[in-house]
Design a binder for these strands. Structure first.
Lengths: 148, 148
DNA sequence: CTGAATCCCCTATGATACTG
DNA sequence: CAGTATCATAGGGGATTCAG
């Protein structure tokens, strides 16, 4: 770890029109932070659980698993615990029998869900295009693929 | 791949206590599509490469690796290839010596980058809060944590 | 019902070496 | 420079069992 050298730009090839600028992109500390967050949140299960909770509000363990879909109890537990740890999810245990444990997004979690909303929408809008791109690629692949 | 049997949980198709409504959320086909997209795109390396390309435009292989940070050549290749396959990235090979291969986002890739933009911003804004939440959780964890 | 604990497979990922 | 190929390993992740 810790390497993270960053001689950064200076050598950007010309004609880089749409150079997108992010707030704080020049702050290495923030860069590292974003990186860490991405690594923590950019995981299949986390995103799916996030979506499920964002959509359905307060749900119980088993139900949550059903909503997410094909997820093992183990992964669900692990994911949800990690999210709780990160302050994205609130876990409420009702001391009754049978046990009733409810999960819901925290304020932070909801805000993240909102941020990801753009991605869901994107997926809905462009899913088919990706599908098409993939098929097309498959057709052209295998050979040299003369681009350039 | 995982065709995990049939979860004959008879009790599932019920009125959803949905709060947030996504376009097409009632269409199982679209649901599956979103799910697939998420699974494909919600991966650490993909997101990091996406960000790097979104920020810097056209970059060469090695440079891209530097921009992403701690990524092995193998993973970079794999990720970038997958993204190309999905139509997110365009790969241009210049037949010169030494070889020069440039990567850049396609229109589709840029649109995804835009969708994810909300997440970068979120990470920048809430990174520290997550940090705090985690620390706090650590302190309170370990024991029973009587909630409810 | 909600999990924790176990067993175990398989793949994701890193390190290294080789090629064009 | 831009990969590919190989080897090796940790851990992701499923199935099953146990417990409160």
């Amino acid at each position: 770890m810790g390497k993270t050298k960053a001689p950064v730009k200076t050598v950007l090839t010309k004609a880089k029109t749409a150079r997108k600028v992010y707030p704080g992109e020049d702050d290495p500390r923030l860069q590292a932070l974003v990186r860490e967050i991405i690594e923590r949140v950019a995981d299949k299960w986390t995103m799916l659980v996030l979506e499920a909770l964002d959509e359905h509000g307060v749900v119980r363990f088993t139900r949550l698993g059903e909503l997410v879909g094909e997820i093992s109890q183990k992964m669900l537990t692990k994911t949800v615990r990690q999210m709780e740890k990160d302050g994205l999810v609130k876990r409420t245990v009702h001391p009754v029998i049978p046990p009733r444990v409810e999960y819901e997004l925290t304020e932070l979690g909801r805000s993240l869900g909102e941020a990801f909303c753009g991605v869901w929408v994107w997926a809905l809008k462009n899913g088919e295009e990706i599908e098409r791109a993939r098929v097309e690629f498959e057709r052209g692949a295998g050979r040299g693929i003369g681009m350039s």
